[in-house]
């Protein structure tokens, strides 16, 4: 029998949303559905509708009190400072507001670099002020000639358990991992060849907090704490 939707009545996307909400998908199919939820509002809404249809079935599951120390573990694992960053950042108003603020914040830094260099280079570097929660966390400079990106911490506060990871988000909205950052010093990251065409003006740099060693999935798994748009000098 065919694997494809062979019943008229629901479009393929809606069936996929139903299958995800029910929980029957595994492996690549489940991961692909999760990526679509993160990126496509219409698909995410279909999944939410299916979750709402099915969740009353959880009536059939008796509540079981968790052990008392579980709350203490949760409280201890909350970030020590600052309001939580949204994980749905690419859909959030604060994220888009942050973008426009970041562009404005660049002017002073740009002028400083121009004076320092004393001329206008052949490949003008791109810069981004990577901000979040009202603070500038990192400043990034892309050297197009060398294919590298230098990132210096500004007001980034280290997290005891997680490391900052840098992402490049071009116009298609999909985050590409660039590498891990440091709270205590600058890093220079070589941009992978395949990603260099995406390191252009208006592409976005984002920093998320990830488990030690970086995101295990190739996509941000922790909160995105800061973002900034690449701008020409």
């Amino acid at each position: 029998m065919s694997d494809t939707a062979d019943h008229s009545g629901l479009p393929a996307d809606e069936l996929l949303a139903a299958e995800y909400a029910l929980g029957v998908l595994a492996g690549a199919e489940r991961a692909a559905a999760e990526q679509r939820i993160a990126r496509e509002g219409v698909f995410a809404a279909m999944v939410a509708e299916w979750e709402a249809r099915l969740s009353p079935w959880a009536t059939g599951i008796a509540p079981v009190p968790p052990p008392p120390q579980l709350w203490d573990n949760i409280a201890a694992a909350l970030p020590a400072h600052a309001a939580p960053a949204s994980s749905g950042w690419w859909q959030s108003l604060a994220f888009w507001r942050g973008l426009s603020l970041a562009s404005g914040a660049l002017a002073a830094a740009c002028i400083g670099v121009l004076i320092y260099r004393g001329n206008v280079p052949e490949h003008p570097p791109l810069m981004a002020s990577i901000d979040g929660g009202g603070h500038r966390h990192f400043v990034a400079t892309v050297d197009l000639a060398r294919g590298s990106i230098a990132v210096a911490p500004a007001a980034f506060a280290a997290d005891a358990t997680r490391v900052p990871e840098l992402w490049l988000i071009p116009a298609d909205g999909r985050p590409r991992p660039l590498g891990l950052l440091r709270a205590d010093g600058g890093v220079v990251i070589t941009i992978p060849q395949a990603l260099r065409p995406f390191a252009t003006r208006d592409a976005v740099l984002a920093v998320s907090l990830e488990p030690s060693g970086g995101s295990p999935t190739g996509q941000p798994t922790g909160p995105v704490i800061a973002t900034g748009k690449l701008t020409n000098l």
Partner: peptide
């Protein structure tokens, strides 16, 4: 068979929604 199961589940979800 897997195909039969997919068909059952999808048909059931369509009925449920309707």
């Amino acid at each position: 068979p897997l195909g039969t199961m997919k068909s059952w589940v999808r048909r059931a979800m369509i009925k449920l929604k309707s």
